[in-house]
Each structure stands twice: as C-alpha cells, then as structure tokens.
Amino acid sequence: MVTAFVMIKANTGEADRLRDSIESIEGVESAHIVAGDVDIIAKARVETPAAVKEIAATNIQGISGVESTQTYIAMD
C-alpha cells in the first residue's frame, strides 16, 4: 500500500465543495480544510504509486476551483 498526502491550493472560496469532491474520490481517506498557504490537505491510501498520480494529477486537479497540488508520499 502507498500512503500519500496531497496539499491543495484553491482559487475559490467554496472550500466545502472542494473538500467534499476530494473526499468522494476513490482512494482518498480524508480531506481537511487547513489554515496556511495551502487550503486543503487530503490523505490517500492506494495500491500503487501510479494510483497516487491518478488521484492528484487527474482527479483532484480536474476539480474546478483547484489551482495546484503538491504530493508527498509517506516513507514509513
């Protein structure tokens, strides 16, 4: 299994909608609205590193209102 954290920078005030859309993506365990220079952090647990890329690059970045994402893969 691969665990990844995706930092999401938005460009809309509709943080609720973004969080709900992100949480509904398969493989995303949880998503939280956070204070600071990113707006949402999502935690994903999937089978392969390729699936992480699919979640971050395709699914999350495909949501309107998402400006950019940064993904961190857990090593432990």
Partner: peptide, 13 residues
C-alpha cells in the same frame, strides 16, 4: 493574502 480566502477564514477559523 488572497480574496477568495476571506470567506474560508471567516467560516472556519
């Protein structure tokens, strides 16, 4: 620092 964050911080912070 950005206009769209006004609503988010008013609601959640």
């Amino acid at each position: 620092d950005e206009a769209y964050r006004e609503g988010i911080y008013r609601k959640y912070a």
